[in-house]
Design a protein around this nucleic acid. Structure first.
Lengths: 227, 227
DNA sequence: ACCTGAACACCGTTCAAGT
DNA sequence: ACCTGAACACCGTTCAAGT
């Protein structure tokens, strides 16, 4: 059995030839790179998608961005700081996606709104595996570092909680404890996303959303037989 | 349900016969380690509990076991193999715990049995944080390595599925798709355990079980208001 | 202001012994 | 049979420049 073959010594330096798109963000700033912070973040997501978040190294990310590994320190404090930046951006994008999806679901149907949230969450994870692996990786902020990351996560949880409370108020959801219900829902989508990402449950990308609605729909209805 | 089976793969021999608690590591001079495999596994769990699974290094584990880092290679193929061994043992112990707990819950109450499984799972995670961090870490067997680990996980899932099927047959659970329901339940307990382990939800260890029953109990009953 | 280079202590893994 | 030692390529991080 062959070990995970290391990159044989000095890679030919993949000189990323600058990121495509983006017209010219370097107006007066005469960067050497253009936007190294962006490039490092993108490289990190790519590495995480290819080989898992634990395979990420500062040096490899810098290599992909075409710079010396020390250059990253100009934009990030250390290795964890890069992961925190990726995670924070991920939660921010996820929240935006959820909010956008909810615009299409009537407030009169709280159950459908919760399902839409679940669907958005798991689809996001499935479509952004690199970012999600970082987001769901070892907690970066136990020591109360990364307050903006913590805030991005809290924003998501608050949104879910409000939806549950709104549903209860409209008398469309049972009068459960909203905090508990938020945790339970979040746990369920997190767990499901993990199963999908790790391919413990195999599902074609296009079907991730419907799988989520099916599984979570049953959960929201409950398994216990009505008396 | 399949028996734990012998540890396949390249490990030459299990030495599992020297299981008894070594009262004192006294004895010989040249002193081959009593059970280095055991010591490495325990050290790995300790490291994972203290600093997270990603902080585990072969060299540190060997250091704690009091041997040269090369000695570990006599018992494990490589770094991943150590993590796989820890994970496999964890799932085996978890299964035993669940089975033991279920003995005290009547077959006539499937919902209580599912809650007991959930409770066992999250309590195990809470009480064995090191092992659980490894078990829930990056998937080790994507390349179809570690078949015995895969089997240990499957054994757990099969047990859950059978409980659900039994509940449906007794007409105590709604006639949901058993496979889907298994995934949903597993996802929920995995997600909840992750929230507890990472302290995103803060709860005293003694209350983990009741928190789990409360949250999952609501889920099993469903959030949707009965019409 | 932004990036590079050398240095240090650490890792996983291999080859080659030591007992 | 079980363990140690030296070596190699890699990593994160620091100090100190180069442009």
């Amino acid at each position: 059995m062959i070990a995970p073959q290391k990159k044989a010594s000095a890679k030919p330096r993949a000189r990323a030839t600058t990121k495509p798109k983006k017209a010219a963000p370097q107006a007066s700033k005469a960067y050497h790179h253009g936007d190294l912070r962006r490039a490092i973040i993108d490289a990190t997501k790519a590495i995480a998608e290819e080989s898992g978040a634990e395979a990420f190294t500062l040096r490899e990310a810098a290599r992909r961005a075409g710079v010396n590994h020390r250059a990253a320190y100009r934009h990030f404090q250390d290795k964890s700081d890069v992961l925190a930046a990726v995670a924070e951006e991920g939660f921010t994008v996820l929240l935006a996606r959820i909010v956008s999806t909810l615009e299409g679901v009537p407030a009169s149907d709280p159950e459908a709104r919760l399902l839409a949230i679940a669907r958005s969450y798991v689809e996001f994870a499935s479509e952004n595996r690199g970012a999600y692996r970082v987001m769901s990786g070892p907690r970066l902020n136990v020591e109360a570092n990364y307050p903006t990351l913590e805030e991005a996560i809290t924003n998501c949880l608050v949104l879910v909680r409000r939806e549950i409370e709104a549903g209860i108020q409209r008398d469309k959801l049972r009068n459960v404890n909203a905090f508990d219900a938020t945790l339970a829902l979040w746990a369920a989508v997190h767990g499901l996303a993990t199963l999908v990402i790790t391919r413990r449950v195999q599902v074609r990308p296009a079907l991730v959303g419907s799988l989520t609605e099916r599984l979570l729909g049953d959960l929201l209805s409950g398994y216990a037989k009505k008396k």
